[in-house]
Design a protein around this nucleic acid. Structure first.
Lengths: 163, 163
DNA sequence: GGTGTGTAATTGACATGTAAATCATGTCAG
DNA sequence: CTGACATGATTTACATGTCAATTACACACC
């Protein structure tokens, strides 16, 4: 008995799809994160920060630029950078031109940690996520993710568009 | 340029599918959670606990049973129950037969909060998630989620199996 | 030069998550 | 009985996330 598209409430089947989807995605995230942590002693957040800094001109960015790239709150970035600085992955320097902002600089140790983490991280994504599916299923995921992003008003980021 | 199934690393297209999938799922979770919080002042965790207790015999469960149902660490459950107890949503009683365990009991206030939250929450899931897709796409999500759960060694929880 | 306003970033207070250690109780071999 | 071990749950320590308040500086206008 298919429910009308206009019903305000989901059918129990639809709700079950939601529950399975969201719970599975959570577990997936946790597994990949755990591998990154075990292989490279980096959290997901660490990885994003290191990635952004690696790609930045001079391996340095202002904290707010970093926050904008990663789409984090500034306060979240602030706390995270504090922890990363304590571990020697980044360094914060006073910004000469505008002393309100600080320059976040990738340290040699940070760059080394990031380089060492990349291959294992990609392998983990392959083994944990990609290998679960057939090529057709991966395309379906691409489609449904795109549909969802459109519905949510998010910019597209399809994998197929770059093929 | 399809990559062999056996390559250790994902293609850039495959990796893009991963990034889109995981990022979109996060945003989705955050949106539904925000609605639940705004409508009912409950977190996702609160809702899960209340749901499990509501369905339980006598509106009570042992803490470890609750943890097993929701698939949480026991320590996580412990901390969460502490916060929920402070807000009057649940109560912990000494278990008579086995004094190691405690009985987690749904309070009247907890039951009321849960009942009040259900309809808005279902509406949110419908509007934010279900309505993004065609029926065919929802079936595809069900399929790919099932494939992923199998790959991850998780028990199945398909929406179609209950249709 | 001061003073108000905006902006960059940090701080503080809390909720949430994970892992390891601890505590209390139960169970069972001897 | 009793001592070793198993089990249920909490505690502790810390990482992570959000929000509101605060600090430090820049800049424009008088």
């Amino acid at each position: 008995m298919a429910a009308s598209r206009r019903d305000a409430l989901p059918t129990s089947e639809q709700f079950a799809v939601w529950r399975a989807y969201i719970q599975t995605a959570e577990i997936l995230r946790a597994r990949v994160q755990a591998r990154l942590q075990a292989d490279s002693n980096l959290s997901d957040g660490d990885y994003k920060v290191l990635l952004a800094l690696s790609e930045a001109d001079g391996s340095a960015l202002r904290s707010s630029e970093l926050a904008a790239i990663i789409e984090w709150e500034r306060s979240r970035m602030s706390g995270h950078l504090g922890r990363m600085e304590k571990r020697g992955l980044v360094r914060r320097e006073r910004h000469d031109e505008d002393a309100r902002g600080s320059r976040v600089v990738l340290t040699g140790e940070g760059a080394r940690a990031f380089r060492a983490s990349m291959i294992p991280h990609l392998e983990a994504v392959k083994g944990i996520f990609v290998d679960a599916f057939t090529d057709v299923q991966l395309d379906e995921i691409d489609d449904t993710t795109t549909a969802l992003r459109t519905h949510l008003g998010l910019p597209p980021m399809s994998g197929r568009s770059r093929a």
